[in-house]
Design a protein around this nucleic acid. Structure first.
Length: 206
DNA sequence: AACTCGGGGCA
DNA sequence: TGCCCAGAGTT
């Protein structure tokens, strides 16, 4: 794969507005926002977190909230019961096991309730600048179709992308793949006629 | 590997 | 209305 830069350039041209839309100011806020973003769009998550972080900016204020309080504040997001319980328990684990700080280790992050491989990658990359390429369903589908990787598991896809793509473009390309996955390279009924990297497509699952 | 959770967004 | 979703946990 020697035309990675070319593919990224095309995608950047197709999605000039691609960027991280998740609202956060601190590692703790990013962790909360990312947990809330599972199976929900960043836009709907932001509608909740902007006001929430205004009133409860950090762990010390969050830990005063009961599960029911959190449910009331994030009810607009899907899966809000699971997510409220996760946030509630995360606050207590951070207090008791991590001295009130957000850990930067993959194993430590994934030990937190509601934090899986994808959320851990995002927190590591965005909050701590640790080399990690978050692979969600869109990144997995798009990069495999475009032929950037033939790996069959998210972890191996992540490894391949980190080798292929220069580290300073990981964050941007991550969002390019997600935007492309949502707008053009959809799982079902993709808009191939509008796709600027159709020539490279391996047509997996089409 | 296959299920479940769930309100919003969108056709 | 009905279908899908910027995942994670459980079986």
């Amino acid at each position: 794969m020697d035309n990675v830069e070319e593919i990224l350039d095309k995608l950047e041209k197709q999605h000039p507005d691609a960027r991280c839309e998740l609202y956060h100011n601190t590692p703790f806020q990013l962790l909360v926002a990312t947990v809330l973003s599972a199976q929900s769009t960043d836009k709907s998550v932001n509608k909740v977190t902007v006001g929430l972080f205004e009133e409860y900016p950090d762990l010390d204020s969050f830990i005063t909230l009961e599960i029911g309080d959190i449910e009331d504040k994030i009810r607009k997001i899907g899966l809000y019961k699971n997510k409220s319980r996760s946030i509630y328990n995360i606050c207590r684990v951070l207090k008791s096991d991590f001295d009130g700080m957000v850990p930067c280790g993959e194993k430590e992050l994934m030990s937190l309730p509601g934090v899986g491989r994808k959320t851990a990658s995002v927190v590591r990359a965005v909050a701590f600048g640790i080399p990690a390429f978050a692979v969600d369903t869109h990144v997995f589908r798009v990069t495999r179709r475009i032929g950037l990787t033939e790996a069959k598991t998210p972890d191996k896809v992540s490894d391949d992308l980190m080798k292929l793509i220069p580290e300073d473009r990981w964050i941007l390309s991550h969002h390019l793949f997600i935007f492309h996955g949502r707008r053009i390279c959809k799982a079902k009924n993709p808009l191939c006629a509008e796709c600027m990297v159709f020539e490279e497509c391996m047509k997996i699952g089409l």
